[in-house]
């Protein structure tokens, strides 16, 4: 069961992102990706880190339609969920960090590095998404079986707990975004200086 869920999410995610890695680096887009990383990482990183509201996080609000799942056998349902949610493009992404990933791949020096990072990103995102699902299933089962678990069980504290975790994840996402943005800005500045002062 665990290996099946992991594979259903990680395999399509790895395939989609590996192809994207090739597509984004086959044509040199670094000149576009680096300023984009600096601007996007700087803006959304600062926003998420300080907890302010600004421009909405890019993305779509599409959700997997019930018609695709109703009446489908469990195995096919898992395949549909895995193929749509594993790569991460189809549904809403609550944190801005996700849309930095294609730009980070486009900033890689050449197709080999692009495919390696794309494959790693897809595998990491799909596996992490599956791991979160397995964690939720395990918690729900433990609560249903009456096993004491380290999660709040009544609705209000459960909701507040989830809300608090969202705040923490958002702040963490912001810190990594800002670091990436600053790194991209530093690379741009260094490249400009290297051109000004030839060795």
């Amino acid at each position: 069961m665990r290996a099946g869920v992991l594979a259903a999410y990680a395999v399509p995610a790895t395939a989609v992102w590996a192809l994207l890695g090739l597509a984004l680096t086959a044509v040199p887009l670094r000149w576009l990706a680096l300023p984009l990383l600096a601007a996007y990482g700087g803006y959304y990183g600062a926003l998420e880190l300080t907890g302010r509201s600004g421009l909405p996080v890019p993305g779509r609000s599409w959700q997997v339609p019930q018609s695709m799942l109703i009446g489908a056998p469990p195995r096919r349902r898992l395949l549909v969920w895995g193929a749509l949610l594993g790569p991460g493009f189809a549904t809403r992404n609550p944190y801005a960090g996700f849309w930095l990933l294609p730009a980070a791949i486009a900033a890689m020096p050449g197709p080999a590095a692009g495919v390696v990072l794309g494959t790693a990103v897809g595998c990491a995102h799909g596996s992490a998404r599956a791991a979160a699902l397995l964690r939720d299933v395990a918690q729900t089962r433990a609560v249903a079986a009456g096993v004491p678990v380290a999660v709040s069980q009544d609705a209000l504290t459960g909701h507040l707990d989830a809300l608090l975790k969202t705040v923490y994840w958002r702040r963490f996402d912001g810190a990594v975004l800002l670091t990436t943005g600053l790194l991209a800005a530093a690379i741009l500045a260094a490249a400009a200086l290297a051109r000004l002062i030839p060795a």
Partner: peptide
């Protein structure tokens, strides 16, 4: 390893961290 390679490796590591956390944290979103 040149400075450019080191910078690309650091960027790739940060991107991987974002990929893991964005995948894992999604189920907490309201």
């Amino acid at each position: 390893m040149t400075a450019w390679t080191a910078a690309a490796a650091a960027g790739a590591a940060l991107a991987l961290l974002l990929a893991v956390t964005n995948g894992y944290a999604k189920s907490y979103s309201p």
